[in-house]
Design a protein around this nucleic acid. Structure first.
Lengths: 249, 249
DNA sequence: CGTAAATCCGGCCGATCCACCGGATTTCGG
DNA sequence: CCGAAATCCGGTGGATCGGCCGGATTTACG
């Protein structure tokens, strides 16, 4: 089934990871994805990234190996609302095998039917990626394979593409993502913000931390100022996405 | 160098992943970690999980193969504040090789010096894991190896332990993590919450969405109610962690 | 065909936030 | 030893929030 030796595949994988880590521009990504088709004998590879820029209005980032026709058709048909790979995959932590999808829904069957017409494989896996700042991605791969072959292939795919997906996301984030300005909050500022995030009022936080209400207000104020936030809600959201509210100091 | 054939290691890896996915109680985790020592020829494996329960006061979750003495000593010395594996690893997306740490700091050198005394390897890798709800983990492995061996080993480790770390975290989250009650917000509620998270006032959101200020207030109110939140800040935080504010649908 | 949920709108009032004014000591690195 | 940053404290006033009262139509599902 596989034309390549395992060691070859391993080497090519590691080589590709290094390339991804050094990648200088996103225009080279399609070529790298095509390389993956070759190495792993796939029919398609697709990357879908969300929340890369922290701006709410921003659209998703897409990089695929298949034709633009399919992308256009997919968009026109609003398949994203139906596609279980996106709907389920984006809400998971572990990869998911497309075989496990419930295909009783008429629209789902139509989606997969038309997908094969556009050159996608009958088997598929989607691998979710979770970034540090609420950014997420989904890497989906397809190929054709018998039941027997697939049982073995999927395990290797789930392993190798877990790493690949992560490095790919990291590369795209590095090139396309908005620079996260590194802001340092003082311990007290962080604490006050943390309790604000838990819905506590300034007075409640003051009791919890053994401070005066006014002092808590001051910390929240300076935290807002540091974060460039309009209010506490904004500050909590920004700090959370910037990973400033994690338990560890 | 490696006593096992690659295919053997692959099979044992996949077997272990299945075991992790089926794991019924956390007490079996140490045994599984020890199995990893054997399979991969390591000196130690450690799992550190944060934010598993969504309660802010909660301590981290720890599962390790090395002695309790080292854990106690580590805690007593407050090494967590110094340990670059935690300080840097927890703030990254990709795995990090301990060789790249800056060891000029006196405390850092002391940490690694004492670590080897307690039976940890001289080489190490830390693999960060990012969950969907702000939960994070760090899986760290150590072994002794020559420069030459290490260059090859680390690549395989980074690949295999990426998957292992993810499944391990998922298992622990499933068993120890707080049930995330699945709440569904209506599109309008989500939109209003999204803009609140961006620091907009109800009036501003009303202008953006073309609604009356009062209507926006109502949506925010019902969102707060659904989420069991004390105020908008709390609601945004909860919804964000529950992954209800993502761009899709 | 009724019921539930979602989509909208108005007003009231007390609680809370937020910006701005003022002050203080301690700690730590250049 | 000076300055910067972090830690604390007090008050005011207008803006905003948050809960609670009332109303409406449309849509979807059983």
């Amino acid at each position: 089934m596989r034309r390549r030796d395992k060691n070859d595949t391993d080497l090519e994988l590691f080589e590709l990871l290094v390339k991804l880590d050094k990648l200088a521009e996103t225009t080279r990504i399609p070529a790298l994805l095509c390389k993956l088709l070759e190495i792993y004998g796939l029919k398609s590879v697709a990357y879908l990234g969300c929340g890369l820029t922290a701006q709410p209005g921003q659209g998703p980032y897409l990089a695929v190996t298949y034709s633009d026709d399919w992308v256009d058709h997919y968009k026109a048909q609003r398949f994203v609302d139906v596609d279980p790979a996106v709907q389920i995959g984006m809400r998971r932590m572990l990869p998911i095998d497309w075989d496990t999808f419930d295909r009783r829904d008429k629209n789902v069957r139509r989606l997969f039917g038309e997908a094969t017409e556009f050159g996608l494989g009958r088997r598929g896996i989607s691998i979710p990626v979770h970034g540090q700042h609420g950014d997420r991605a989904l890497v989906s791969i397809t190929r054709d394979a018998s039941d027997r072959d697939w049982r073995h292939l999927r395990l290797h795919y789930m392993r190798d593409f877990q790493v690949l997906a992560l490095h790919l996301h990291q590369a795209i984030l590095r090139l396309e993502g908005q620079r996260i300005v590194s802001i340092s909050l003082s311990p007290r500022e962080r604490e006050c913000l943390l309790w604000a995030a838990e819905g506590k009022t300034a007075w409640e936080t003051a009791v919890i931390l053994g401070l005066s209400e006014h002092t808590v207000r001051c910390y929240l104020e300076s935290a807002r100022h540091k974060l460039g936030a309009a209010n506490n809600t904004h500050a909590v959201n920004k700090a959370g996405k910037a990973n400033l509210l994690s338990q560890l100091p």
